[in-house]
């Protein structure tokens, strides 16, 4: 299948926050509570449509345990988007966000779009981190924010797609150099270069990124 662009994503966050489940829900549209431990990195891919353009998302799902940080750092290279995930029922996963963010900023391109995700929103009764806290953290650090549930699929689609929209918007604004693969963007095979970017009229749809609340 042809595509206009390929965006590389990386999913990061503490162990057990649901990174692999988010990926599986997004690529296969199913929830699998029992799955193998992620050791190192796993991969997923899906095609999405942004403003009438086919975009392939190549997603790197990483191990969350502290010891793996030194390995994970090598996976950031060339990522256009990052999903930084915490578990709303475990405060310590929220407390670790700053160190994750530091790692992400230090080892990736400065243009990388970061989406903060509070996962497990279906477990409202066990909530340990208020939505407002997530929002505040995102605002403070210039991230996009969403609460999701990999179990019910709530907002999962939106989280991945809104990140793509934001990257696409940055391309159109000329913030991303699509010819430099270090930015995590590749032009699809057989795509004429002239079709890429340029501030065009196709920009609107991506404006609804903040208005996400939806089902969660």
């Amino acid at each position: 299948m042809t595509y206009a662009y390929l965006f590389k994503y990386i999913i990061i966050g503490d162990t057990g926050v649901g990174k692999s489940c988010l990926l599986l829900q997004f690529t296969d549209k199913r929830f699998q509570p029992v799955h193998d431990l992620t050791i190192g990195v796993e991969f997923g891919a899906r095609m999405v449509n942004i403003d009438g353009k086919q975009i392939k998302l190549q997603i790197w799902d990483t191990a969350g345990q502290e010891s793996f940080r030194s390995i994970t750092r090598s996976y950031y290279r060339g990522a256009a988007g990052a999903l930084l995930v915490y578990d709303i029922t475990r405060r310590e996963t929220f407390n670790h966000l700053t160190s994750w963010l530091e790692d992400a900023r230090q080892h990736s391109s400065s243009n990388m779009v970061i989406m903060l995700i509070g996962n497990k929103s279906d477990l409202e009764s066990r909530r340990d981190v208020k939505r407002e806290e997530g929002e505040a953290f995102a605002r403070e650090h210039g991230l996009i924010f969403m609460e999701t549930s990999a179990k019910t699929a709530c907002n999962v689609e939106e989280a991945f797609i809104n990140t793509a929209k934001e990257i696409y918007r940055k391309i159109q604004q000329g913030l991303f150099d699509v010819h430099n693969e270090a930015n995590g963007i590749k032009i699809g095979p057989q795509q004429c270069i002239s079709t890429s970017a340029g501030p065009s009229t196709a920009q609107r749809n991506s404006g609804d990124i903040e208005s996400n609340s939806g089902c969660c």
Partner: peptide
């Protein structure tokens, strides 16, 4: 594709995973 993309579980689980 460097070994860290595929061989980490080979080493860390001795192929068991």
């Amino acid at each position: 594709i460097s070994p860290s993309l595929y061989a980490a579980p080979w080493f860390l689980t001795l192929f068991a995973s």
